[in-house]
């Protein structure tokens, strides 16, 4: 059940995208997301579609797998779209009781749907192709300049990587405890809301106990290996930009320039309504 959630999981592979420097991928994801919200035209979305298609193809991650990741956020998206659809003031197109759909509402809703879908796909490509460790490595190095302002970048990155590392462990643990309690006749899947919440106690108590036990063990293990924070700590695999990373930066720049050019010079007239 829990294994069905693909969003945010690493998908092992050896494509060019997998091998890119995590800083490049972080930057790329940021550029992509900003472009989605800064340039909201049909032509911009077409270009974004093209870009995402190219990245997905080179990453060799099955499209089905990526789309599966959209499932858990589908409800959230639906709510956003509905709110936009019904609550945007403007020219009324359709009216039913107190609800009215406006032309602007439809436009906003479509925009929102496209943006959110691409936002999730874009960021899930980042997590699909980057191991949590290299992701935090990228963040730590990429945000290293914040050290000047006394931001504990290393500590934040370490906490993040530990948190990320523990997600699959705790998910496994949840699965195991659920099974163990089901073997004792526990029922997590039926009954009303109150019964279901009550049924969570035999799951949550052992889960908390084990999370604390693991945290304690980890802290001890880190200390016994001489961990004392970020100062003077070296990396086993220091991040180094290679030619492919430079190429990726150039591709990003080209993408941004194209976006800007599209905004000013290409106008696809859209008159849905």
């Amino acid at each position: 059940m829990l294994k069905d959630i693909t969003l945010g999981q690493y998908y092992p592979g050896n494509s060019i995208i997998h091998r890119l420097d995590p800083r490049v991928k972080l930057m790329g994801t940021m550029v992509f997301i900003v472009s989605l919200f800064a340039f909201g035209s049909v032509s911009a979305y077409l270009l974004a579609t093209l870009a995402i298609a190219v990245v997905v193809t080179t990453s060799k991650i099955p499209l089905k797998y990526i789309l599966k990741g959209l499932k858990p956020v589908f409800v959230l998206m639906l709510i956003t779209v509905l709110f936009n659809l019904f609550l945007t003031p403007g020219r009324t197109v359709w009216k039913f009781w107190k609800l009215s759909i406006t032309a602007e509402g439809i436009r906003f809703a479509i925009h929102m749907a496209v943006r959110l879908t691409y936002l999730i796909i874009g960021s899930s490509i980042l997590t699909f192709t980057t191991t949590p460790n290299s992701l935090t490595d990228g963040l730590e190095t990429g945000l290293g300049f914040l050290n000047v302002f006394h931001v504990p970048v290393h500590e934040i990155a370490m906490m993040m990587s530990i948190a990320l590392r523990f997600i699959p462990i705790l998910m496994d643990e949840t699965d195991k405890i659920m099974r163990a309690q089901e073997a004792r006749g526990a029922d997590f899947h039926s009954g009303g809301l109150i019964r279901r919440v009550k049924a969570m106690v035999p799951l949550l108590v052992p889960l908390f106990v084990s999370a604390f036990r693991r945290a304690n063990d980890l802290a001890l293990a880190m200390e016994s290996r001489g961990y004392h924070g970020g100062a003077g700590r070296t990396k086993m695999k220091p991040l180094v930009y290679r030619r492919r990373d430079v190429a990726a930066y150039i591709a990003m720049a080209v993408y941004l320039i194209l976006m800007i050019l599209l905004k000013f010079f290409v106008k696809i007239p859209v008159n849905i309504l």
Partner: peptide, 9 residues
């Protein structure tokens, strides 16, 4: 289960 004491609540 293995390590069944972890299911005690």
């Amino acid at each position: 289960f293995q390590y069944p004491e972890y299911q005690i609540f």
